[in-house]
């Protein structure tokens, strides 16, 4: 039933612009698909190069890997110590994102559900942090953490990531909680659930999707974060992936470019993101775009 109703409107929608369409439109479509293809090809190309040795990469950059040898990966993994960096990155990204969401979700819930001037101002206060460029707090954070011996420490980095993520996560989740029907809580209250119980047993299950989105967005941003990690971490055993990658690139200027190893390093950075995106793609782009449109 619904299908037979929907199809004609769809057709109509698609046909309308075409009637006013022109050569320009066709050119636009071609260019757009070229751009899309370029993105896909670029990604595949990077993955392919990671399986080739530096000399063949340089002599024929468009060549296909002759064999699927993991030599670059093992070198990057062992010699350049991407293993430690990957482990550090995974643990920091996971721990800090879990804690960020665990702290921000109740706050966002409370702020979005209890209308008062104080709460409105508090929400605004959280959101204002979105406008502060990270370089502003870089030096004070370094000095503060140094005082308590938390520089060059993954615990310190975790704490910093949690603090820095509060504005965005609270912003995203207040918007999300606001979109949930208030009747749910009223019903829970009538049934005698305490407000805390309502949050844990009624709202959290309903808000699962939004909270998962917030979590994964933080996971990605902490996985990629570079400036703070570069400032706060000094020894190689504490490096996260971006810092390890930078130091790898900088070594190349002395020891000659090991492009094979470098491409393997890039893959270690990109592929987990690709996996997460394939898993949750639409949710992520909606989380990063719909919230903005409101």
């Amino acid at each position: 039933m619904s299908l037979s109703v929907r199809v004609p409107t769809r057709l109509k929608r698609r046909r309308t612009p075409l009637s006013g369409g022109s050569v320009w439109r066709t050119i636009g479509i071609v260019l757009l698909w070229l751009f899309v293809a370029f993105n896909v090809a670029g990604l595949i190309w990077v993955i392919f190069q990671a399986f080739r040795d530096t000399r063949s990469i340089l002599s024929s950059p468009f060549g296909l890997p002759e064999s699927w040898s993991f030599e670059n990966f093992t070198t990057a993994w062992q010699v350049s110590d991407f293993a430690t960096a990957t482990f550090n990155s995974v643990s920091v990204a996971l721990i800090s994102s879990v804690l960020t969401v665990a702290l921000a979700a109740p706050a966002a819930y409370y702020l979005s559900r209890h209308e008062s001037r104080l709460n409105r101002n508090l929400t605004l206060f959280f959101i204002l942090g979105l406008g502060v460029p990270v370089q502003v707090i870089l030096i004070p954070l370094f000095v503060m953490l140094n005082e308590v011996n938390l520089t060059n420490s993954l615990i310190g980095l975790n704490l910093v990531y949690i603090g820095v993520s509060m504005p965005f996560t609270v912003f995203l989740l207040t918007g999300f909680f606001r979109s949930l029907p208030i009747e749910l809580e009223e019903a829970a209250a009538l049934d005698g659930a305490s407000p805390a119980g309502t949050f844990v047993r009624i709202m959290l299950p309903v808000a699962k999707g939004g909270i998962l989105t917030a979590f994964v967005l933080q996971l990605i941003s902490h996985w990629n974060e570079t400036l703070l990690a570069l400032t706060l971490l000094q020894s190689t055993d504490k490096y996260t992936l971006p810092v390890a990658l930078i130091s790898f690139v900088q070594q190349q200027t002395y020891s000659g470019a090991d492009w094979g190893g470098l491409f393997a390093g890039l893959c270690i950075v990109i592929l987990p993101l690709l996996a997460v995106y394939l898993w949750l793609g639409r949710k992520l782009s909606e989380g990063l775009t719909l919230g903005m449109g409101k």
Partner: peptide
């Protein structure tokens, strides 16, 4: 009134992290 009491456990921790690791550093800057 009881909901208001929840403010501290709900908003407190997030606010604390935000204040100590974001607002105070900004002021210090």
């Amino acid at each position: 009134a009881q909901r208001r009491k929840l403010m501290i456990p709900f908003v407190g921790p997030a606010l604390l992290f935000y204040l100590v690791l974001f607002i105070i550093p900004t002021g210090a800057a």
